[in-house]
Amino acid sequence: MQVKSAPNQRFFVFGLIAVVVLGLLVYAYGSAAYTQFIGWVYAGQKMFHGEMTDNLSKFADSASSATAWAVVFGSFLYGVFHAAGPGHGKIILSTYLLAQPHEVRKSVYMSAAASILQGIVAIVLVYGLFYAFGLVAKETKAAVAWSERLAFALVMGIGVILIWRAIKGFGWIGQKAHSHNPHGDHEHSHDHGHDHQHDENGLCSTCGHAHVPSSEQVSKATDIRTIVGIIFSIGLRPCSGAVLVLVFAKFAGIPLAGVLSVFAISIGTAITVSTLAILSVQARKLAVTLLDGAVGKAEIIGNGIALVGGAALILLGYGLMQTTFEAPIRSMGL
C-alpha cells in the first residue's frame, strides 16, 4: 500500500503553525503585550459604557428620533465590542462547530438565536419580574443566579455529549461500523426534509443515497437537542451590561428605550459571535481540505476536538457553576 506523503506533510505544517501560535500566546500571556491588550480592552469597555450612559441620559432628558438612534447605535457597538471576548458561549459554540461538519447558515442562526435569547432573558429577569411581581433588580439576584446555574449545567451537559460522541466516533464503544460510515466526512449536514419515501432496502427514493433512518434520524434528533441546549447554555446567562441598561432605563422612566437598547446589544453580539462561528466552520473545512485524501484523519481530528473540547466544557461549566455559589462583593453588596 502506497502511503501518500503530501497530506501528511500538510498535516505536519498545520500542526506546526498551531504550536507556534500557542507558543506565541503563552509568551504574550506573560508579557507586556498582554497587559497592553487588557488595558486596551478596559479602555474600550469604559468608553462604550460611558457612551451608553450618555446616550440613555440624553434620551431621558429629551426623547427624539436623534437621541433614540444614538441609543440604538451606541448599544449596537457595545454589543459588538463586548462579545469580542471569550465568553463561555463562544467556547461552547466553536467547540461544537469544530468537532463536526456544519453549514455556515446553521452556525449563524445558532449565534443569532443565542444572542437574542440572552437579551430576552435579561428583559424577563428585569422587567418581567418587576412588572409581574414588583421585584427590583436587587431582589432578583437569586433568580439571576439560578438562570446562570441552569446555563452552566447545560455547559457541562454539552461537554458530556461531545465526549460521548467522540468515544462513539473513535469506535471505543458502540457500533464500530460508525467510524467507517459510508458518508465519510463530507461537508454538508443532513438537514433536508425527511418526509421522503423509503423502499424496502432502506434507500431513499428522493435523494438517491443510502439512508439509514434508525441511526441518522436518531442522531439528527440528538443534534437538535444539542443545538437547543447550546443556545440555552449561552442565552440563559444574561449579560450584566444589558441588566444594568434595563435597570437604568426603568429608573429614568424610559423603559422602552431599555428594550430597544438591549435588542441592539443582542444584534451587535450576534454579529461578533456569528463571525467566530463562521470562522470555526470554515476552519474545519480548511483542515479537511488540507487533509484531502486522508478522510479518516479529518474524522479523528474532529473526534479529538470533541473529546478535548468536551472535557474543557465540563471544567468550564464546573468552574462557572462554583462562582455562582461564591459571594464576591459585587454591586457594593446591594
Binding site: A84, G85, P86, S280, L286
Partner: peptide
C-alpha cells in the same frame, strides 16, 4: 483563512481575565 482560524483559536484560549469587564 489560516490566519483567521488561528486568531479564532487564540482568542478562545485566552484566559477570561484577559477580558477585564468592569461593569
Amino acid at each position: 483563512q489560516k490566519t483567521l482560524f488561528c486568531t479564532a483559536i487564540a482568542v478562545n484560549l485566552l484566559p477570561n481575565s484577559a477580558w477585564a469587564h468592569p461593569h
